[in-house]
Write a protein that binds this DNA or RNA. Structure first.
Ligand code: MN
Ligand code: MN
Ligand code: MN
Ligand code: MN
Lengths: 218, 218
DNA sequence: GTATTTTTTTAGACGAGTCTAAATTTCTAG
DNA sequence: CTAGAAATTTAGACTCGTCTAAAAAAATAC
């Protein structure tokens, strides 16, 4: 009963778009996310539904079942372990790994993943700060808040980044922002919600566009 | 112009069965090797032929073109680098890696392969002793002879093994035979061509079935 | 509360890759 | 040299995943 590459990609997209299974995902949102057409999504949705991986109410979107969530988390686990490998062992920059992990996540071999996990020292987060589900699919999410919801005077640390777009990650690299780094909010402009922050030792201005994609500790 | 997974598998099988492009490969041989049906092979052959990756004479088999050989060698390069990674870094036994490499060889990312190669220290042979083509597809084959063609009194070393069957590799493991190990032929039975050999420090009897799949130095 | 717009589903088609069964070609005995 | 056997190709069908165009349902606007 193992899933095809397409099925895995759909399941993962549904899981992510549903925000970990908390809200239903609409057909067009999935089509956008997977760069495909709504009609194709409807077709695949029916198949996943028959296999009991998602629940589907016609016209009102889908969500993962318990079974589907387990499968999605396995794929996410593989994706994040491979990303970690690529950055930590092969010396890739963090903005280069997503596309490659998108392929590697579909390699089928439980033993491979076990051994990779061990080789990497059982990491709990990937290079983007995203938590890595364990072998049983359990995922420990650290409390985290989008930086745009933070007020002046805040001191904390970056936990993760939301966007996996390469240009965004390159920009973060440039300003020295990555998971683990300390961050302070010096001032916040009421008009456009842009911010002046200190990351590492550097003072930088960031727009709301950026701050909403940076997740920080409480 | 990148190839599909199926195309890559066919091309690699043709290259191997043709013994590095030296003889034509027949439809049924290909079907056996790929665990598919002759009719499917004929279909795919036509496609590869149109793409100028193989030359095809109806009813008389196929062989790789220069272009096809280049592509096949790239896939083989990836396969053998991944096998090396699995054994050297992830601590897999050498009989466990073939199936996984069969999947990993299709991951598309030139940068990944470059970096993997570097990470492994630019190995020249894989865990089975098979040469790893370099980035340009150049392959250095060490002189090697099947052990069954060797006579009494021979002293040399194992260069590679032919069969990637797991049971065969496990057997070799048991008798301590692997690429790099020294080997001597103590005696050879004329009747069935079985041999008494010393591998490492151990004296063992091996059948022709085994000796023909062990490649040794001259 | 009806009309228009937006979203989703259905209908029908296509390419990739595979299969079985039938036709064709080549090989091999005698 | 020819009949039968063996190998290969062709014909037609199927699944998977995708697409476009048309139909249907839901949301929204007035
Ligand atoms: Mn993927
Ligand atoms: Mn990530
Ligand atoms: Mn393969
Ligand atoms: Mn090998």
């Amino acid at each position: 009963m193992s899933l095809s590459l397409a099925e895995e990609n759909y399941l993962k997209a549904i899981y992510h778009l549903s925000e970990d299974g908390t809200k239903d995902v609409l057909t067009n949102a999935l089509a956008d996310s997977l760069s495909t057409k709504a009609a194709s999504v409807t077709d695949m949705i029916k198949k996943l539904s028959v296999k009991n991986l998602i629940s589907y109410k016609k016209y009102y979107g889908v969500n993962v079942t318990a079974k589907g969530k387990r499968q999605a988390l396995q794929v996410i686990r593989k994706h994040r372990l491979w990303e970690t490998f690529l950055v930590q062992k092969l010396d890739f920059a963090w903005d280069e790994v997503h596309e490659i992990a998108e392929q590697l996540e579909h390699i089928e071999s439980p033993r491979l993943i076990e051994k990779l996990d061990k080789f990497l020292g059982y990491p709990t987060v990937d290079p983007h700060g995203d938590p890595i589900p364990n072998g049983k699919g359990k995922i420990v999410i650290k409390p985290q808040i989008p930086l745009d919801q933070i007020e002046e005077g805040y001191k904390g640390a970056i936990v993760a980044v939301k966007d996996s777009d390469s240009a965004f990650l390159k920009y973060l690299e440039k300003i020295g922002a990555k998971p683990g780094k300390k961050i302070q909010v010096i001032s916040k402009e009421a008009y456009d919600e842009s911010m002046e922050v200190i990351v590492g030792n550097q003072k930088v201005f960031i727009s709301k566009e950026v701050s909403k994609n940076i997740l920080v500790t409480e």
